[in-house]
């Protein structure tokens, strides 16, 4: 099964494999935030609607919410983050993922950006 990666204007990424989406924040987002000192992750089983606040990520001087880019039921949170917040700074777009969810509506993916579109968005807004 092929995987595909999408991006959001909130600087999050969504990797889709089958009907499972893995969600994290982009390298740009972590660089803006600085050293991550705390994360709060959603519990497995929680139903999230697209746009709903799902997780919290904090640095010393800032707190940001991580939104569910698409709707679905949380299947897993990345517990490795809790012991090592620095994963988010070191590998934001791989090992530093936040949570996985089971897609409720694959149609929502159409509203997200691909890498090229996100890069253009960054150039315009960063």
């Amino acid at each position: 099964m092929s995987e595909k990666i999408y991006y959001t204007k909130e600087h999050e990424w969504v990797r889709v494999e089958g009907n499972i989406a893995t969600i994290g924040i982009t390298d740009f987002a972590q660089s803006q935030l600085g050293d991550v000192v705390f994360v709060e992750l959603p519990e497995a089983g929680r139903d999230l609607k697209a746009g709903e606040a799902a997780a919290v990520v904090e640095s010393v001087k800032a707190a940001s919410e991580v939104f569910a880019p698409v709707s679905g039921k949380v299947t897993q949170a990345n517990e490795a983050l809790v012991d090592s917040f620095s994963l988010i700074n070191e590998a934001p777009e791989s090992d530093g993922w936040f949570f996985k969810l089971e897609l409720a509506n694959t149609g929502e993916l159409g509203g997200l950006m691909d890498r090229a579109a996100y890069d253009d968005f960054l150039k315009e807004h960063a």
Partner: peptide, 12 residues
Amino acid sequence: LSTREQHIRREK
């Protein structure tokens, strides 16, 4: 743990 506080979280 200042992110709990008003000068960062404001209304939250």
